Amino acid sequence: RLRTTITPEQLEILYQKYLLDSNPTRKMLDHIAHEVGLKKRVVQVWFQNTRARERK
Rank of each mutant, 00 (worst) to 15 (best):
T25H: 04
Y15H: 08
Q48D: 15
D30Y: 06
L2M: 07
R53W: 04
K27R: 04
A52C: 07
W46N: 00
E12P: 01
R51Y: 12
V42A: 09
R51W: 09
R55H: 11
L29E: 08
R53H: 07
L11Q: 09
T5A: 13
K39P: 14
H31P: 01
G37T: 01
P24S: 02
T4L: 05
Y18L: 03
V42Y: 11
K27P: 13
R41I: 15
L29S: 04
I13D: 08
I13V: 12
Q16K: 09
I6A: 06
I13H: 12
K40W: 14
T7L: 07
R26V: 15
E35A: 09
T7P: 13
D21N: 04
E12A: 10
S22A: 11
D30I: 10
V43M: 01
Q44T: 07
T5N: 07
G37W: 00
L2C: 04
D21S: 05
N23T: 05
Q44F: 05
K27N: 07
K56N: 10
Q10D: 14
E35I: 10
A33C: 09
N49P: 02
E9Y: 06
Q44Y: 09
I32S: 02
R1W: 09
E12R: 08
T4R: 03
P24T: 00
E9V: 07
S22R: 04
A52H: 08
G37I: 01
D30L: 04
K27Q: 10
I6K: 05
I32T: 06
Y15N: 09
N49Y: 07
Q10Y: 01
L14T: 00
G37V: 01
N49L: 05
R53L: 11
L19E: 07
L29F: 12
T5P: 13
T50C: 10
R1Q: 15
H34Y: 11
V36N: 02
R3T: 15
E35C: 05
R53M: 09
T7F: 01
L20F: 09
I32Q: 02
R26S: 15
F47A: 00
F47W: 09
G37S: 06
R26H: 15
R55T: 15
L20Q: 13
E9W: 04
Y18N: 02
Q48K: 12
S22H: 07
D21K: 00
P8Q: 05
